[in-house]
Nucleic acid binder design. Structure first.
Length: 740
DNA sequence: AGCACGCCGACT
DNA sequence: GTCGGCGTGCTC
C-alpha cells in the first residue's frame, strides 16, 4: 500500500485512464474506482487521503481517495469524479489505522471511515460568518436598546446573536445599527483557531515520585518510537500532573505534534478542560457527544488542519482526523466506558495502543486500578510501568471493613445494617459527611404483584421495570421504555398489589430520611442530575458541606473529591458479582476501590463499610485488606486456567431475530458450520441473559481461542460458510465486555 | 446508508 | 384490475 504518492501515475504512463479508488463513509467493505479526467478535477489524480465528491449510484457522495487495490474493473464502467473538496487530506497514518481497525473489529472499512467523517458540514468550504465591530459614527437616534448594544460592541467582532443576547435586545437592533453605520460588518471565520498551549509555562511543583515518573516518561518520549506506558498510581497521587509533562514534552519535540487525551466520559471532561487550561494557559480542543454542531465542526476542522494541538475527548475522539498525532493518553484506562457497544464495536484503549504501535508513537495509560489486561502486559514486558507510590496518598487510604449481612441484618424492609446506621450516627454527631453508595437507579429494581406473582417487564423485552418514585413511573434501564405505575396488576387486575422489591438509591434515601429526619440528604444519580450543570450544583453543595448524607450511584464514584467526606457505606457490595461474567470480580474491585477512595483526606483517613452476604468472596477480602496485587494475581491465574483474555482470545457471535424458531434453527446451523481448528473452542449457542430486547430474541456463541490464533481470520472463514438472511442478523464482537 | 427493483394485500 | 408494503441487492 503506497500512500505517499499520487496514484494512477503508472496507469497514465502506460496510456491507460487515470483512475483513483474512493472509499465512502457507508457500510461498504471496499473502495470504488473513478476516472480523474473531465469534471473539475482537470485530470490530475488527487492525493490519497483527499476528500472528493463522486457519483455513487443515483446520488453524489463525499468520500476519501483510498490506496488502490483489489480487482480493477472494465474502464468503460468508470464514472468521473465530480470534484476535489477543499479540505486537508487525511494523514497516511490515519488511513492505515482505519484499514487496520476495520480488519480488527470486523466492521466494514466504510463504517470506520464514517466515524472519522461524522461532521456532516465540515466539507462546505470555509464559509464566512458576519460579525460586527463597534466604533462607527453615532446613530441619529439613540434608543436605550441601541445604547445597550453599542456599550457592548467593541473591536472584537461579535455576531448579531452574541451581541443581542449580551445586550438583552432582539438581533434586529444590531442589524439596524449596522445599517445606520454605527456598527461595521466584518467577515469572521466561524471556526476560530484554538489558542496554542504554552509549552514554556511550568506545571505544578512535582513531588519526587512524580518528578521521577515524569522524567522516565519524558525519556521514553524523547527516544522516539512506540511504547505503551502504564502510569499506576492511587487517586490523588498526581497521575494527571505526570502525564501533562509527557504531553508538554511531545508537543515541544515537534512544532506540529498533536496530543490526544482520552477520558472515559463527558461528565469528567468539563472540569478537566479547566485543569488543562491552568497547566497550558490555553483551553484544549474538546470532543464529546454534547458539543453543539458548531463546536463539533470547529474541533474537527482545526484538528484536521493540525491547528488544534492538544485535544481532550471521549472515546470517539480517537477517530478525529489528526494531521500529526504524536501521543495518546488514555486516562482511567480500566474504565469500561471506553468500550463502544453500538454501531462499530471497539475498545478505545485497545485501539489507541494499536494505533500508536503502528504509527510509532507512545501511548500512555493511566489508572489507580489498572485493568488486568494492562497489568499482564506490564508483567510480560510489553508495556513499561511507571508507579506513583505516593506516601501522601497512602495516608489518605480509608480503612475498609466488611459488614456480614447474615449476622448484622437490617429489619425487614430496611437496607442499612445496624453497624452502618451507627457509623452514620457517629458521623452526623461529628458534623462529617457520609456517602451511601448503591449502583442502582430508581426506587426498586423489581416490581412484582403480591397476588399473582407477575413481574413487571418491558414490552417485548425480558427486562425488569424499575420503579422511579420521584416520577411515579416504571422504567426499563435497557430499552428506555417507561410507563406510569399502573394502579392494578395488568395480569390479575388486583388493585394496589404491585409491590416494589429490593432497594434502589431512592429507596435508600427514603430510609435515610426516616432515620435522620434532621439531616440534609441528597440523591445523586443520572435521573436526579440531568446535565453537567445539575451535577455541578450537587458536587458544589457536597463540597461546601450543605449535604450530610449523599446517596449515589456510580456517577459519584469518579471525579470529585469531597474534603469533609469521612464515611462511605456500600449498601450492596455483592451487586456487581452476580451474573458472573469473566470481568465481574475485576470490575467490582475497580468500582468499590474507587468509591471507597472518596472517604477521607490526607490529615484524616476515612473509613468505608461494605455490606455483603458473601464476605468470603476474594474481591471483598482483597478490598478489606488492601491487597490489590494478590487479588490481581489470583484473578490472572483464574483467567489463565480458563484460557480467557488476556491469556486467550475471545469473540462473541450474536444472532438476533424477531422470529424465535428461525433464530434457534440458524444458531444451530451456524454452530454446525464452524470450521474445526486446533485451539479454538466454541461455547453455545445459548440464549443471552436478557433473551428478548425490544421484541428481538438473541442467541450467542462465544469463541475462545489461543493467543496465537488469528481470531478474525477464523471468524471470516466461518461467516463465509453461513448464508446471511435479513430475518436473522449476525454480529461479531471481538473481545466482548458486555455479556447481556 | 440510500435507493430501485420486485413480488403479494386493500382500494378505485 | 392498480397502489404500495418493505425484503433484497447494488452502488465504480
Amino acid at each position: 500500500m503506497n500512500i505517499s504518492e499520487p496514484i494512477g501515475d503508472e496507469a497514465a504512463e502506460t496510456g491507460a485512464v487515470n483512475s483513483v479508488s474512493v472509499l465512502f463513509p457507508l457500510p461498504l467493505p471496499k473502495a470504488y474506482d473513478y476516472i480523474c479526467t473531465g469534471g473539475e478535477t482537470g485530470g490530475e489524480a488527487p492525493l490519497v487521503g483527499s476528500f472528493v465528491l463522486a457519483p455513487f449510484g443515483p446520488r453524489e457522495v463525499v468520500g476519501v481517495v483510498w490506496p488502490s487495490g483489489g480487482d480493477p474493473i472494465e474502464p468503460e464502467k468508470l464514472k468521473p469524479l465530480v470534484r476535489v473538496i477543499d479540505a486537508p487530506p487525511l494523514a497516511g497514518e490515519l488511513i492505515d489505522f482505519i484499514a487496520w481497525a476495520s480488519a480488527y473489529t470486523m466492521f466494514p472499512l466504510g463504517s470506520i471511515l464514517r466515524m472519522v467523517m461524522r461532521v456532516a458540514d465540515a466539507f462546505e468550504g470555509p464559509r464566512m460568518q458576519t460579525a460586527f465591530v463597534g466604533g462607527g459614527e453615532a446613530p441619529a437616534r439613540l434608543t436605550p436598546q441601541r445604547k445597550a448594544v453599542l456599550d457592548i460592541a467593541c473591536e472584537t467582532p461579535m455576531t448579531a446573536a452574541e451581541l443581542s443576547a449580551a445586550a438583552g435586545v432582539s438581533d434586529g437592533v444590531v442589524r439596524g445599527l449596522a445599517d445606520a453605520g454605527a456598527l461595521t460588518r466584518v467577515d469572521v471565520d466561524p471556526d476560530p483557531p484554538f489558542d496554542p498551549p504554552d509549552l514554556h509555562r511550568s506545571g505544578h511543583d512535582l513531588s519526587d515520585d512524580q518528578q521521577f515518573a515524569a522524567d522516565e516518561i519524558k525519556t521514553i518520549i524523547a527516544s522516539g518510537g512506540h511504547k505503551a506506558i502504564l502510569i499506576d498510581g492511587v487517586t490523588g497521587s498526581g497521575k494527571t500532573e505526570v502525564y501533562f509533562e509527557a504531553a508538554a514534552e511531545a508537543l515541544r519535540r515537534d512544532d506540529n505534534a498533536q496530543v490526544l487525551i482520552l477520558l472515559p466520559e463527558i461528565a469528567l471532561t468539563l472540569p478537566f478542560l479547566t485543569r488543562v487550561e491552568e497547566r497550558f494557559g490555553a483551553a484544549p480542543a474538546p470532543w464529546h457527544s454534547e458539543l453543539t454542531a458548531a463546536q463539533r465542526r470547529r474541533t474537527w476542522r482545526r484538528v484536521a488542519e493540525g491547528q488544534a494541538r492538544l485535544v481532550v475527548g471521549a472515546r470517539s475522539a480517537l477517530f478525529l482526523p489528526f494531521a500529526n498525532l504524536k501521543l495518546i493518553i488514555v486516562d482511567e484506562e480500566h474504565d469500561n466506558a471506553y468500550k463502544q457497544e453500538d454501531g462499530v464495536i471497539y475498545h478505545a484503549r485497545d485501539l489507541s495502543v494499536a494505533r500508536g504501535a503502528r504509527a510509532g508513537f507512545p501511548v500512555i495509560l493511566a489508572s489507580a486500578t489498572p485493568s488486568l489486561e494492562s497489568v499482564v502486559n506490564v508483567d510480560e514486558g510489553r508495556y513499561d510501568a511507571v508507579g506513583l507510590p505516593s506516601r501522601f496518598a497512602e495516608a489518605a487510604m480509608p480503612e475498609i471493613s466488611l459488614i456480614d449481612m447474615r449476622e448484622d441484618a437490617p429489619e425487614a424492609g430496611r437496607w442499612l445494617s445496624p453497624r452502618l446506621v451507627s457509623a452514620i450516627n457517629d458521623n452526623i454527631s461529628a458534623h462529617e459527611q457520609s456517602l451511601l453508595f448503591l449502583n442502582r437507579r430508581g426506587y426498586a429494581p423489581m416490581t412484582i404483584c403480591r397476588r399473582c406473582g407477575h413481574k413487571m417487564t418491558a414490552p417485548g423485552s425480558d427486562t425488569m421495570l424499575v420503579e422511579h418514585r420521584f416520577e411515579n413511573r416504571l422504567v426499563c434501564h435497557h430499552t428506555g421504555f417507561s410507563m406510569p405505575k399502573p394502579p392494578a396488576c395488568p395480569e390479575c387486575n388486583a388493585v394496589d398489589a404491585l409491590t416494589p422489591c429490593g432497594p434502589g438509591v431512592e429507596r435508600v434515601a427514603e430510609e435515610a430520611k426516616e432515620r435522620w429526619p434532621a439531616a440534609n440528604i441528597a440523591v445523586l444519580s443520572s435521573d436526579t442530575v440531568t446535565g453537567p450543570r445539575a451535577m455541578r450544583e450537587v458536587l458544589d453543595a457536597m463540597r461546601d458541606g450543605a449535604i450530610d448524607i449523599l446517596i449515589a450511584t456510580q456517577v459519584a464514584a469518579k471525579g470529585h473529591h469531597f474534603p469533609n467526606l469521612t464515611l462511605v457505606g456500600v449498601v450492596d457490595a455483592d451487586l456487581g458479582l452476580a451474573g458472573g461474567d469473566l470481568r465481574a470480580g475485576e470490575r467490582t474491585y475497580q468500582l468499590l476501590s474507587q468509591v471507597t477512595g472518596r472517604a477521607g483526606r490526607a490529615e484524616k483517613p476515612g473509613r468505608a463499610l461494605l455490606q455483603t452476604y458473601q464476605p468470603q468472596a476474594a474481591v471483598l477480602k482483597a478490598l478489606a485488606t488492601g491487597d490489590r496485587d494478590a487479588f490481581l494475581a489470583a484473578e490472572a491465574e483464574g483467567r489463565r486456567s480458563l484460557g480467557y483474555p488476556p491469556y486467550g482470545r475471545l469473540a462473541s457471535v450474536t444472532l438476533r431475530s424477531r422470529d424465535e424458531a428461525a433464530l434457534e434453527k440458524s444458531a444451530r446451523a451456524m454452530r454446525a458450520a464452524a470450521p474445526l481448528a486446533d485451539d479454538v473452542e466454541i461455547l453455545g449457542p445459548a440464549r443471552t441473559p436478557i433473551y428478548r430486547l425490544r421484541g428481538v430474541a438473541r442467541q450467542r456463541m462465544l469463541v475462545k481461542a489461543g493467543r496465537n490464533i488469528h481470531l478474525q481470520a477464523y471468524l471470516s472463514d466461518w461467516l463465509e460458510r453461513v448464508k446471511k438472511t435479513s430475518v436473522v442478523r449476525i454480529s461479531v464482537d471481538i473481545n466482548p465486555y458486555n455479556f447481556l
